[in-house]
């Protein structure tokens, strides 16, 4: 799939497969994938996180404002971002699980709270520019230890490996899959599904917040709407990658592949003169097709 899209792009657009263009796409895809790590985990456990734009905004604005303007050290910013996002995510997970409410609605509200909170905290003023240290991470022509690959790409690869180890080879990862696959059976073998939900939402939120910091550095600034495109494309990347809602199939690698496909597609579409609207339409259709193929519900007559 990825190869196919890539070849199509090379044929359609001059310079598509040139070094700088590939690097740029890799950086964008890596950011997209990192921003969707949390979403992937939450979907695996059986939820849906619409608070992603909120977490990204928190991370991005904190980077621009606290690190850029106020000159906090980066680690302090990272710690506070993780703290805020993890708390918000944990609250969402707890409400969803204990009150049996759809995670969609709760996280939608949480997103609004976070973004509103950010606006209030910054008094909607102009934001600073992220410091140099972090901008190096997402610099397209950047190098990692003298290897000509931008650090953020290496980070994404590292996270793929790490998440694979976690999901496939640790007890916590196994319990996450089990909870997503069949919550009743999971409770039957005495897995504390409430705890799994809360930690997954909290961890996902924290990871997304950190991705927001990188996004700020990539865009050399932050605004309160910075998270939206990453949320939409990220969710599409998760679903197009084949991680199906409510069935606990999939992993982060698939999300990365989905992100690569979507980034390449978007690049091609914009090269062909099509806009943001068209790629959204395409994303929507892609989701429908993929989900129709993977994740359909039971029929009503089988439930009597």
């Amino acid at each position: 799939m990825v190869l196919g899209v890539f070849v199509w792009g090379s044929v359609q657009i001059d310079g598509f497969s040139s070094g700088p263009s590939v690097r740029a796409m890799l950086v964008i895809a890596s950011l997209l994938a990192l921003a969707s790590l949390g979403q992937t985990l939450v979907i695996l456990v059986g939820g849906l996180d619409l608070a992603v734009p909120g977490y990204i905004t928190v991370g991005a604005v904190a980077t621009a404002e606290l690190a850029g303007t106020k000159g906090w050290p980066l680690w302090a910013v990272a710690v506070s971002v993780v703290g805020v996002c993890a708390f918000a995510g944990g609250v969402c997970g707890a409400i969803c699980h204990y009150l049996r409410v759809q995670s969609l609605v709760v996280t939608l509200g949480m997103s609004s709270v976070l973004i509103g909170g950010v606006i209030v905290a910054t008094k909607a003023s102009n934001l600073g520019v992220p410091p140099q240290d972090i901008s190096k991470w997402t610099f397209v022509m950047g190098e990692t230890l003298d290897v000509p690959v931008p650090p953020v790409v290496c980070l994404a690869v590292g996270v793929v490996v790490g998440s694979w180890l976690f999901l496939a080879h640790t007890p916590a990862g196994r319990r996450l899959y089990a909870t997503g696959a069949n919550p009743r059976a999971a409770e039957g073998i005495l897995i504390r599904t409430g705890r799994v939900w809360i930690t997954t939402f909290a961890f996902g939120a924290a990871a997304t917040g950190l991705a927001g910091m990188l996004i700020a550095s990539y865009s050399s600034g932050a605004s309160v709407t910075i998270g939206d495109p990453y949320f939409y494309s990220g969710l599409a990347a998760v679903l197009v990658g084949g991680t199906a809602l409510g069935s606990a199939r999939g992993d982060f690698l698939r999300t990365v592949l989905g992100a690569l496909i979507l980034t390449a597609l978007t690049t091609i579409l914009s090269g062909m003169g099509l806009g943001e609207g068209d790629s959204r339409i395409l994303f929507g259709l892609a989701i429908i097709v993929v989900v129709l193929a993977y994740g359909r519900d039971r029929r009503l007559r089988d439930r009597i």
Binding site: Q102, L245, F283, G284, L285, I287, G295, R296, D297
Partner: peptide
């Protein structure tokens, strides 16, 4: 299509 309402309307949201 027997899609979950959330997913179906989310896809329509995009479209």
């Amino acid at each position: 299509g027997r899609l979950q309402p959330v997913i179906a309307t989310l896809a329509m949201f995009f479209v």
